[in-house]
Structures are given as C-alpha cells and as structure tokens.
C-alpha cells in the first residue's frame, strides 16, 4: 500500500511538488460567495478547496447551550464525502469534532463575544477537496467570512502547518508529506503574534518546535497579507476606494437627525387621521438648525 516516496527533498533542496522548504502553496480567496450567508469565503490552497460560511449572530437553540454573558461560537468543520480519494463517511466523526472544537477556540479570543450575550455565531467550514492542511485552510477562510459578516474581531486569524520530513522542517505540508512525514504542527496566529491554536502530531525536539513556530509565523504573515488584499480590494482596486470613502456618515449628531426624521415619518402615518400636535414642530426646527450648522461648518472648511 505504501506509496511513501524515497526522498521528500531532492538534492536541490526542492520538495516533491517543487517548492522550497519555506514556501507555501499558492492561495486564492474569494469573498461573498454564498448569497444566503451573512459572510462567506471560498479558498483554494494548493489542492485544498474550502468553503466557509458565517451565520449570525442569531438566536441559539437548544437554549441550554446559551451562555448568559457571551455569544457561543459554533464552528463546524466538515469534510465532504467526495473530498478525499476514498469516499469519506458523511457526518461528524471523532476527527472533525475535535477540529471543530479547537478551531472554535482559535477564534474565541479575538471575537467580541460579550457584545452578543446568549446568541450564537455559526461558522460552517466545508472541505470540498482535501490535500493536507484542511483545518488551517478552513480557519483562513473562516476569518474572511467572519469579517464579511460584520462580526467585531480584535484581529484576523491566520493558520499554517509546519511539518518535518527527512529530518527537515518544512512549511505547509502536502498530502504525502503529511501522511509519511515525521511531524505535523498546525498553528494559528493573531496579527499580534499570539498563538490561538497549536496541535502536534509526531515528534519534534524543543529546538525544532521553537524554529517551527517562527516559520509558521512567517508563513502567517504572508497569509495576513493575502487576507488584507482580499478584504481591501473587495470593491475595486485601492485607487477606486478613494471614491468609496464617500460612504456612510453615522456620527452621533447625524444619528440624532435620523432619529428625529424617523419620528417625523412615524407621526406622518397618523397625520391623515389626527391633527399634528405642536410638539412636532420642535424636532423639525432642530433639524433645520442642524442643517444650517452643518452647511456653515463645511463651508468654513472649504
């Protein structure tokens, strides 16, 4: 059965797929691919294909799972039956349950769960095609999906696996390296360099572990750069973004305006049947004043 290659790294220092030891597989991401999800991302990383969707914050059922002060992050890592060469038995299993748990914990420190007490944020990561490193790929996609869903996060998360083959540490294992290598070490980082996930399969010495963490951090820097690019270029290239900066106004004052506007509109509903009372004039006057002030202010600036 063993398809174990004789050598993982050739005499030129290149790996089976032609990469250098510190080189990641090419990664592409697409944001907003699911119309019914609040946030979504499709990610390809070498031969890995992962789809992540975020739903919520929304009401959590069953209620006994609710946390009174914080939102629950319910992460579901799932491998499609067709994602591997031999059909995977559908449904959760020991491995996917474990990955779901640790991935959820990878996001818990950065998501502001205290803003949504007793709610749930559902993160669904679906592996469509697997080629080693799917949990890290899923985490990278989930970060983008969470950002798109407008979930408040202190940092993005990036994850990458470090492995050991032929006694040498390598970045981002592929399938053969994962199956027949000596160690597999997936790590997730925040932008500050804090580790939010670390697992290890196989054996590494203390020094190797330290070196591996350094290598993973370097790789994650590259992933952050890619994630940043995807998010910032979502509405066009940076030069067009200047235009986009015109958007959105809600400062406290403006919000106040809106409120009064709403009240006016609400009272308009009844105006046909009832006479407008005198209180109604007050917000209107205030509104006008604000307009004048704003105009005056803007003109001064010019």
């Amino acid at each position: 059965m063993s398809n174990k290659p004789e050598k993982f790294i050739d005499e030129n220092g290149l790996r089976l797929d032609g990469r250098r030891v510190d080189e990641m597989r090419p990664m592409t991401m697409e944001i907003g691919v699911l119309s019914r999800a609040d946030g979504s991302c499709y990610l390809e990383w070498g031969k890995n294909k992962v789809l992540a969707g975020v739903f919520g914050p929304r009401e959590l059922h069953p209620r006994r799972m609710q946390r009174a002060n914080v939102a629950l992050i319910r992460y579901r890592y799932n491998m499609a039956a067709f994602s591997v060469e031999d059909r995977a038995r559908p449904g959760p299993n020991r491995r996917s349950t474990e990955i779901s748990k640790v991935s959820s914990e990878a996001f818990t420190p950065v998501i502001m769960t205290e803003l949504y007490p007793s709610a749930v944020i559902d993160v669904l990561a679906e592996v469509l095609q697997a080629d080693a490193g799917t949990r890290t790929a899923a985490i990278n996609a989930a970060t983008i999906a969470l950002a798109e869903a407008g979930i408040p996060m202190k940092s993005l998360i990036a994850a990458c696996a470090i492995g050991k083959v032929d006694g040498q540490l390598v970045v981002d294992l592929n399938k053969d390296e994962d199956n027949y290598g000596e160690a597999d070490l997936p790590i997730a980082f925040t932008q500050d360099g804090d580790i939010t996930l670390l697992q290890m399969d196989g054996n590494l010495t203390q020094d190797e572990l330290k070196e591996a963490i350094g290598m993973a951090q370097k790789a994650c820097e590259q992933i952050f750069e890619l994630q940043r690019e995807v998010l910032l270029n979502r509405f066009g290239k940076p030069d067009e973004i200047e235009q986009l900066a015109e958007e959105t106004e809600p400062e406290p004052e403006v919000e106040f305006d809106e409120e009064t506007t709403d009240e006016e509109v609400a009272s308009e509903l009844q105006e046909d049947e009832e006479e407008a009372p005198s209180e109604e004039d007050i917000p209107e006057e205030e509104n006008d004043d604000d307009v004048d002030e704003e105009l005056g202010g803007e003109k001064d600036e010019q």
Partner: peptide
C-alpha cells in the same frame, strides 16, 4: 485598533462603520 471590516470615519473620533452586521436592539429605536 479597528474591530470591524468597514469604513473608517475620522472626523472627530475614529469610528468604524461596518459593511454588514445584524441589527442590535437599543432603547427608543423605532
């Protein structure tokens, strides 16, 4: 630092208005 993916508004204070998100109820809202 920013908490959200959105537009930065730096008129008085630095505020970030997200591109999306759920409605969170607050008192007096219609």
């Amino acid at each position: 630092y920013s908490l959200l993916y959105g537009i930065l508004n730096d008129k008085n204070k630095l505020t970030v208005v997200p591109f999306s998100g759920k409605y969170i109820p607050s008192r007096r809202d219609l």
